[in-house]
């Protein structure tokens, strides 16, 4: 459990440092979000399709998680 917590903290630090430090020169101005504002550029576009996929893979494979929660809440695995 200790190792896990350590890992989680590391991930958060990496995320935070990406957010606050290293990336201050990466990216675009707020008014340059025209392309990224398109529906097909939304990372959670097609949520229903991904939910169906995740349910299938959750019940047919030993892995889950990554994109979202790994939990299942169904008796399919």
């Amino acid at each position: 459990m200790k190792r896990i917590i350590l890992l989680m903290i590391t991930a958060l630090i990496v995320a935070a440092s990406l957010a606050l430090g290293g990336c201050s020169h990466v990216g675009v101005k707020v008014w340059e979000h025209d392309i990224l504002a398109k529906p097909e550029m939304q990372l959670d576009a097609g949520a229903n399709d991904r939910a169906l996929d995740d349910h299938i893979y959750f019940s047919k494979e030993a892995s889950s998680g990554g994109r979202g929660f790994a939990g299942g809440g169904c008796g399919c695995n």
Partner: peptide, 20 residues
């Protein structure tokens, strides 16, 4: 825990760590 980052006007990346 995740972070998404716009790289340029046409590119976005995301990294997640999930624990269960």
């Amino acid at each position: 825990a995740g972070v998404s980052q716009i790289l340029d006007r046409k590119t976005i990346v995301r990294f997640n760590y999930s624990f269960s």
